[in-house]
């Protein structure tokens, strides 16, 4: 079932010179946009909305945690994301990459209904999660957010003790077990326990930036979610703290499905199993360009724009 969903679209043999494979819906392939020239001239690239995104074969037979079908996001009258279809493989790290303003974070925030909180935001399409559409208004957004946790770009611990930071989610969700053990377990998994075990009463704000971010990850883990969304979790951190977060993401991927938005190409290459490349045209509507195993996206991209982006020639 999962494999059916993203049938391989490519019809011609991949080559580095081919701009994009022709699809059945278009009789003649559009002229390949010249990225270098466009970028040099300072004009945005026009994306043809009728074109389908390129999808690679999955190298493994794997269950899907989420499946996005034609997901579009609107802020009022402005369309931020246009008809993105994307699978999120279970217990893997999936990276969303692309230049600023291409709708990566917007898309990520759809996955746990965080866009509900923004007045005027509207999501269309289908996000399959255990055979239900997450976007459906009848689905309880609070329950969705408990099962799909989130870590934000800027570390945002509560101005409470470290213990309370971690325990909060479990407490409000009616956790009745041993709270001390849960807190310890979450902090251990977030690789923070050894640093803070003697000062759990200290304010979460007193920690360093990297520690704060790991505290936020512990907080997300403590409610025992199935999926963790990370919105550029290391962009506000120094290289050492970044490395720790990346190691942590690899470890967490054994138990959780992780979707991470990142600007950092090397980071995507290091931590992710699958990568989706998004791009916005000059009308600033984000579209999916290419999705596949990270290895393939980085070594053998099918779309010229993906290649230009990951080689640093564009974006």
């Amino acid at each position: 079932m999962a494999r059916n969903f993203f049938t391989v679209m490519r019809s011609s043999a991949p080559s580095s010179t081919a701009a994009r494979p022709s699809t059945s819906s278009t009789a003649t392939a559009p002229p390949p946009p010249n990225m270098k020239e466009a970028a040099a001239a300072g004009v945005g690239v026009h994306l043809d909305p009728s074109l389908e995104a390129v999808r690679h074969d999955l190298t493994e037979d794997i269950e899907m945690a989420l499946e996005l079908r034609d997901v579009s996001v609107f802020y009022g009258t402005f369309q931020a994301v246009d008809k993105i279809s994307l699978p999120i493989p279970k217990n893997r790290v999936t990276a969303l990459i692309g230049p600023s303003g291409c709708g990566k974070s917007t898309l990520l925030r759809c996955l746990n209904r965080m866009n509900d909180l923004i007045p005027g935001a509207r999501v269309e399409g289908d996000i399959r999660f255990e055979n239900r559409n997450l976007i459906d208004p009848t689905v309880d957004a609070v329950e969705v957010r408990r099962r799909i946790g989130m870590v934000f770009q800027k570390p945002n611990p509560f101005p409470k003790s470290i213990y309370e930071n971690v325990a909060f989610g479990a407490r409000i969700n009616g956790y009745s077990g041993d709270m001390d053990r849960l807190v310890e377990d979450a902090l251990r998994r977030a690789a923070l326990w050894d640093e803070v075990k003697d000062e759990l009463d200290k304010s979460g704000l007193a920690l360093s930036g990297g520690q704060q971010q790991r505290l936020c990850i512990a907080r997300a883990i403590a409610v025992q979610p199935e999926i963790i969304l990370m919105d550029e979790p290391a962009s506000a951190l120094d290289p050492v703290a970044t490395l720790k977060i990346e190691d942590l993401m690899r470890e967490l991927a054994e138990h959780y499905t992780i979707v991470v938005v990142t600007h950092n190409m090397q980071q995507a290459g290091r931590v992710s199993d699958y990568t989706a490349f998004l791009l916005a045209g000059e009308e600033r509507v984000g579209r999916l360009v290419e999705f596949g195993p990270t290895q393939e996206i980085f070594t053998n991209p099918l779309d010229q724009r993906t290649e230009d982006y990951i080689t640093g020639r564009y974006g």
Partner: peptide
């Protein structure tokens, strides 16, 4: 957002 994200 942080509080919502843990299911509050």
């Amino acid at each position: 957002e942080a509080a919502y994200a843990v299911g509050a």
